[in-house]
Nucleic acid binder design. Structure first.
Lengths: 333, 333
DNA sequence: TTGGACTAAGTCAACGTTGACGTAACGTGG
DNA sequence: CCACGTTACGTCAACGTTGACTTAGTCCAA
């Protein structure tokens, strides 16, 4: 692995000092036009590229952000990654993406690695909402923005979406279109302790404020996957629970419900209306297209990057940032 | 952003020279047991973490690999990323992931960035199979493994999967289960020029060698998406082309076909058997579960990392590596 | 003409680590 | 007890860049 040409090589060729080349490269002031041209020509000729390692060693800035998510196979996270990366790119930064598989030890070591590479900040989806690790690295000097959990402090901020309101929107829509026998397909939720209960609570509240019956039998909990959704829907049908509207924990479960309903010969939305959560891209490609609560991933990414910027220049404490949710009505409800 | 404790801080506390601390940290030889313990204790006490930037500046190694893909929202790529990352982790390395959105300029600048961060190697899915950019950066010293295209040279290798064989497997299976009126849902294929024709060619060859009719009307080309697959299948049905077996360009198109067939009241696999390509995770969650040609993403990742290792220590030229494909038979065919 | 302000450079050290080399102390075989 | 190898360190420079400071020259107003 050759090291490539350095400032010195360029300087020698252009007949100036390395410091001057550095100034030209970084577009600082303090050089003449003629010099600038000679230097640029020399840079071109030797194919010089700045060594980020050396630069970062001094400046302590890399122009790089770290993004840490549990996984990327779930389209929700894939699209979240996309949104954050778009925002990072828009602000001229490179992204390092890593995943922790919900493993706390790995999460810790990823943050360690990011720190040792001197990323300018980290944007993370903490495994099971874990907080201590976040505080630890933030205190050591890693500016961090957490997703989906309310947390703030020195070097630590958060971006959230209002899950309760999203659930209200979804369930409210089912009520508004005249559905009265609602069921929620929820998830067993070992992790995600922060966000899960809100959806169920909102489900109950919305039902009650609409004067509709609520009972524990109207919440079925399975894995938050297609198979889980199918199993949950099957369980509802097998139990003979009357149902004309379904609110799913996420889109994957909604897709599973769609399958189960099709197999059972029930039409969507005629017999049963169906609302998902997250609005992954696939929602619009389903038959019938899935009504879902949208989280604007692009906005989330922008807010996270913007918050990181504010944290770097502003005072210690920054309040959590909330990103709007929105109901996208399609064919399924 | 504080810089954190350095070797010097540890050295001062332990009463030794920084060089000795460095030796302990890197587990080189040349220090006594008592010293080792004192140093470790001091490291613990001050919370020392090595600065990767400084280390990499000298050693020219970062223990980091770069992975560059067109995008991550397509489950195929998401799972590919997963496979590569697992392999990198298994060999003790960190991954930097970036996406280029099929933009050649961005691809170039990503490779530039990776070089300037001194990654130990890059694993890339080149936009539209572009080669020149790969050669350029490889020659400049970035060891690179390309996916899905046959290329090799100094610092440059490739990992491929045999698309033709995959297509033969898929189509052959349809023939073997007695289907005689086959259709291929292909894609319009601006990009992917290398891999696309193979599938169609294999489709034709397999048909012909089974003594079945082939005509251009039996290949319909649309976008490689769910919607594209649905449109393609609709087109086949609308044209009245007799069909009892469908081979799709990828799983997304197969899912679209599944939808179109359901809407048309045709049963899968009874009326029409269906085979996808890639075997994304969702295949097994569909109803009916989708038979698909599997590319082993974990194996692909392992081979790519292994090839990179061989390239770093071996001679200049390494032949392309082929990863096996396999037909996963489920309910749809 | 002097002095001050400004411009266009150059010099040197430092960032935190490791490579190359030096050296004092100790052990060991003859 | 001397020569020699080995162990356990220490010293110093270097990696490629930028921060802080210096310097030489120019321009202009007083």
């Amino acid at each position: 692995m050759p090291s490539g040409p350095t400032l010195h090589d360029v300087a020698a060729l252009a007949g100036v000092s390395p410091r001057t080349v550095s100034r030209v490269v970084n577009d600082e002031a303090g050089f003449g036009e003629a010099t600038r041209l000679r230097v640029l020509e020399a840079i071109e000729k030797v194919g010089y590229r700045p060594n980020m390692l050396a630069r970062a060693l001094i400046t302590r800035r890399t122009g790089t952000l770290g993004l840490v998510v549990p996984q990327m196979v779930d389209p929700f996270f894939a699209e979240l990654v996309d949104g954050v990366q778009a925002a990072a790119k828009a602000s001229g930064r490179t992204m390092i993406i890593a995943k922790h598989d919900d493993d706390l030890t790995e999460f810790d070591s990823i943050l360690e690695t990011l720190s040792s590479f001197a990323v300018d900040g980290a944007i993370v989806y903490s495994p099971r909402g874990e907080r201590a690790t976040l505080f630890k690295h933030a205190l050591r000097g890693l500016p961090t923005v957490a997703f989906g959990m309310e947390i703030s402090g020195t070097n630590l901020g958060s971006v959230l979406w209002d899950v309760s309101r999203g659930a209200e929107l979804g369930v409210g829509h089912l009520v508004r279109i005249g559905r009265t026998k609602l069921v929620m397909l929820s998830h067993t939720g070992a992790g995600d302790s922060l966000l899960l209960p809100r959806r169920e609570t909102a489900f109950r509240h919305t039902l009650q404020s609409a004067g509709l019956e609520f009972s524990e039998a109207r919440v079925v909990r399975k894995d938050p996957t297609i198979e889980g959704g199918r199993a949950a829907m099957d369980a509802v049908l097998a139990a003979g629970t009357p149902v004309d509207g379904v609110f799913a924990y996420n889109d994957a479960m909604a897709i599973g419900a769609l399958q189960a309903l099709a197999v059972a010969g029930l039409r969507v939305p005629d017999d049963v209306a169906l609302v998902g959560f997250n609005d992954i891209a696939m929602c619009s490609a389903l038959v019938p297209a899935l009504t879902s609560v949208r989280l604007d991933r692009a906005a989330i990414g922008r807010e996270a990057v913007a918050l990181l910027d504010r944290m770097r220049s502003g005072p210690d404490h920054h309040p959590p940032v909330y990103v709007d949710v929105e109901l996208i009505v399609r064919q399924s409800a």
